[in-house]
Design a protein around this nucleic acid. Structure first.
Lengths: 136, 136
DNA sequence: TATTGTTATACTCTATAACTATA
DNA sequence: TATAGTTATAGAGTATAACAATA
């Protein structure tokens, strides 16, 4: 079949992101986490007392959609909330949350290594800076 | 804020794909098309008499989800179907479909050029081969 | 037996608007 | 006046199962 689409960076970006997300998602599911859950746990670990709104801004997730996301993590006792003032609340990891986050990081780093290994050596180091130029 | 996520190729891939898809989607919407619609029109143009099933396999879209997609394009008189045998049907572009496809290609190529222009020159040519190594 | 086209459906993710309370 | 957290809801996209008809 003639298929010019893989010659288009935008299309290849779409397909590569979908394929890798499916793969990583399956591995993180063994921890009961989605990619976005792992991202949240990682950011809270690095930024103690961050608020839900600030987290949403950093991850490009709307406030309204943070609610069920954080509720799930709280229900599983992975995060806790503490009032900062009358309207804001600080997020922090529980011990279980930290353990889960570290397990997720292990899966993620192993996966990243595998991804990079698939790329021919001469292209490998260019992927991350090229990607980051597209959205940061 | 400390944010280690952009150092992860898998995460950057996700964010870059989302950002670029949003942007291209807005431009294609001026033609009444989504990215997937444009992909379908392009593939039919390059492969006359392709079937819906073959199209779905190439694009990684399930047969069941091709039904409403093709129905929309047929309702807009962009594609036509002709029976190949008792159970398969050939897809082909109408004149309007070809014109719409060419307009979409114009938008897409202009967008790809812009994307590549955002990438520092020394990384630019490596993006496509690196991406394709991740899913093809 | 495998494949094509189809229907119906469920689930996830995301977007939008609106509301209350507080800074 | 802007921001935080929340509720409710709608839409898009995708996944799954099942079916009839044909190769």
């Amino acid at each position: 079949m003639r298929d010019p689409l893989p010659q288009l960076p935008g299309y290849s970006l779409r397909r590569a992101a979908h394929a890798t997300a499916t793969e990583l998602g399956a591995r993180l599911a063994t921890l009961g986490l989605r990619q976005v859950d792992a991202s949240v746990l990682i950011l809270i670990a690095e930024n103690a007392d961050i608020t839900a709104s600030a987290l949403g801004r950093q991850l490009d997730i709307q406030r309204a959609n943070m609610v069920p996301l954080l509720k799930k993590l709280e229900d599983e006792r992975l995060i806790e909330r503490q009032p900062l003032d009358g309207k804001s609340q600080a997020l922090l990891l529980t011990a279980a949350g930290r353990a889960r986050m570290e397990a997720a990081l292990g899966i993620i780093h192993a996966f990243e290594d595998e991804l990079l290994a698939r790329i021919p050596a001469r292209h490998r180091e260019h992927l991350l800076p090229a990607l980051n130029a597209l959205w940061r």
